[in-house]
């Protein structure tokens, strides 16, 4: 078994197997794999005795969960209201143009994914972009290249 799979099996040992543990278990699972795989969701369904379809129904309902592999660096462009009025829409377009992918997509080499978020709570420095845990404030379109280059080397 892969190291991740061992960790995944360990998750169950921390829970009783009740339905209300579904979302916490999904969160723990995503923390290991970065996204939710079909086999993982099926295993969770079996552990919790919840129909598989409902595990998927719940997972897809919440914005937190992903179903495909993520890029190494997740670029999150904040599209909260404050950022929106300060031009986050154009900023997103700039990222899309620069990265050559649409919002919600991943670059072919899995180095970057581009996502939108609804407010990271840093409205005062809008527009805001998060890369992983790093926060960039007052990002103008022309800084997009620079931000990306910072991480390009780290892949």
């Amino acid at each position: 078994m892969k190291k991740e799979d061992v960790k995944f099996q360990e998750i169950f040992s921390r829970y009783k197997g009740d339905r209300e543990e579904l979302i916490p278990i999904l969160q723990d699972t995503q923390a290991i794999y970065g996204y939710l795989t079909d086999p993982a969701m099926c295993a969770i369904a079996r552990f919790l005795r919840v129909p598989q379809s409902q595990v998927y129904g719940v997972s897809t309902f919440f914005a937190q969960f992903y179903f495909t592999r993520r890029g190494k660096h997740a670029i999150k462009v904040c599209l909260g209201t404050a950022c929106h009025v300060k031009g986050a829409g154009r900023l997103m377009e700039a990222f899309e143009r620069e990265m050559g992918i649409g919002c919600g997509c991943i670059t072919d080499d899995y180095s970057f994914s581009l996502e939108r978020v609804n407010c990271v709570g840093a409205c005062a420095i809008a527009p805001v972009v998060m890369v992983g845990e790093d926060v960039y404030g007052h990002v103008e379109s022309k800084r997009v290249k620079e931000v990306l280059e910072t991480y390009a080397d780290k892949t």
Binding site: M41, C42, P51, S53, Y56, G57, T60
Partner: peptide
């Protein structure tokens, strides 16, 4: 049997199976 559930939300809401298979 519960092979079906609502999946996704908003305009993407659909009747789905596990994994949208």
């Amino acid at each position: 049997v519960t092979a079906l559930d609502f999946g996704f939300r908003g305009e993407h809401t659909a009747v789905v199976t596990m994994g949208n298979k």
